[in-house]
Design a protein around this nucleic acid. Sequence first.
RNA 1: GUGGAUGUAGCUCAGCUGGUAGAGCCCCGGAUUGUGACUCCGGUGGUCGCAGGUUCAAAACCUGUCAUCCACCCCA
Length: 467
Amino acid sequence: MTDKLKNIQQIQPPKGTRDFLPDAMILRRNVMETIRQCFALYGFSEIDSPVFEYFELLSRKCGEEIEKEIYTFHDKADRKLGLRFEFTSPLGRYYASNNAKLTKPFKRYVIGKVYRYENTQNGRYREFYQADVDIIGVYSMLAELELIDLAVFTLEKLGLNNYEIHLNNRKILDGIIEASGIPVNKKEAALRILDKLSKIGEDKVIKEFIDNDLTEENYKSFIDLVNYNNINNNNNKNNNVNNANNNINADFESSNILFLEYLKEKLKNSGKALEGINELVFIFENSSKFNLDKYLRFDPLLVRGLGYYTGPIFEIKSLDVNIGSFAAGGRYDNLIELYGARPEGACGLSFGVDRIIDIIQEKNPDYINNLPSPIKVFIAYLDSNEKLIDYSFNIAKLLRINNITCEINLNEKLNISKQLKYANSKKIPYTIVIGADELKENKIKLKDMKKAEEYFISLKDAIKILK
RNA sequence: GUGGAUGUAGCUCAGCUGGUAGAGCCCCGGAUUGUGACUCCGGUGGUCGCAGGUUCAAAACCUGUCAUCCACCCCA
């Protein structure tokens, strides 16, 4: 290795990771702080846990696909470790490990970095933030309702309202799979293919079914079960299911439930499916009481990859930006006992913070423009004489004591013009200008940068304005 | 992991069939020694992602590599 950097590659951050400039951090900080406050408003407690865990723990029941994406490494004692790729498995361990000290139901949140080794793309990073809320110790669907309510509340605070919350239930999927004659060991493969129906069309789905040792009959019976009966009978091959969803869109309030009632009839022989349907009916019925129903869509083709989900699953998708989903979650009643604790009902929801930020940046310039400046006042002085500087620093200290964020000029050589330019480029809304007159009168000159107005006043009055 | 596109100044980009680089914005200085944004004038700044190769000559053509974006796969 030479001392010099051989090429630019070495000063770029590693693939899929990013540096954030001070300006970008203002938005990031605001979004995370907003999310944090919303979680706290719903009574969740913040926790933290390690960024890396034993690989065995992370990979336990997470699903094969995601296992390939885990960053793994061996420590110096040859322990196999991995970086967390989400927060649910670490939560399982955390809960089992600290069980005796936790009050139940355990409602916690965590905001932190997670890591996935996968190809990068827009909205897809190798290091990114998730904000994760979970409830452990509640079997009731009230937990799901609370999480959906929390999601809507939080997104509204973030200025987002053009999205859909897709809902499905693992139990229903299992029931449909069974009723379609699809072998249990082919379940995952079948669901993965069916998930693509609206993208690649019926012909290709059937082809992929056959390539995966499934049959056309499997497909047909699955679709027959999922087809909502007021679809018009056109042969538009891709869109049977989409049409069903469009019909739902036309009248969400009743259609989600109508669709479920229809499925209930079709799947009346599957106890498990009926259980799942009733769970969703409960969620849909109650969500209208809290004005949440306009966002909700029953989506019988929604499949979530993670292996531990056992009940309702949901995913929130932006209708503005083609970025995939920006939040997702579900119920995972079996996970806790995997880590040795007594079985508990559990469900959670994870926000993709970076994706949310991307959406705001692209679609919501107003939100960004309305963010308060992190620095309220810049203190400029006209002369580098000691008395003036002492007076200025004293004012800075008094502002800080009064909880007013301020920055003071540290470069004595800058003339006032340069100092104002600096304050302006940092979008600081107020400048205090100190000169001989101010010192003599024991006052300050407060300048409103936007209005371009100046007030020759006492510091006490200035503090009143700035607070 | 597979396929495709792209990489030129701090940023956004131009640069023709090969003849050793340009604009706008930013930045710096000045017009303006108690006033920023607007205007005008001047200026700094580039191993053309990196490494090889072809050629008298490469930003351009070829190979490799790294990164970004797009489509798969999957997902926040």
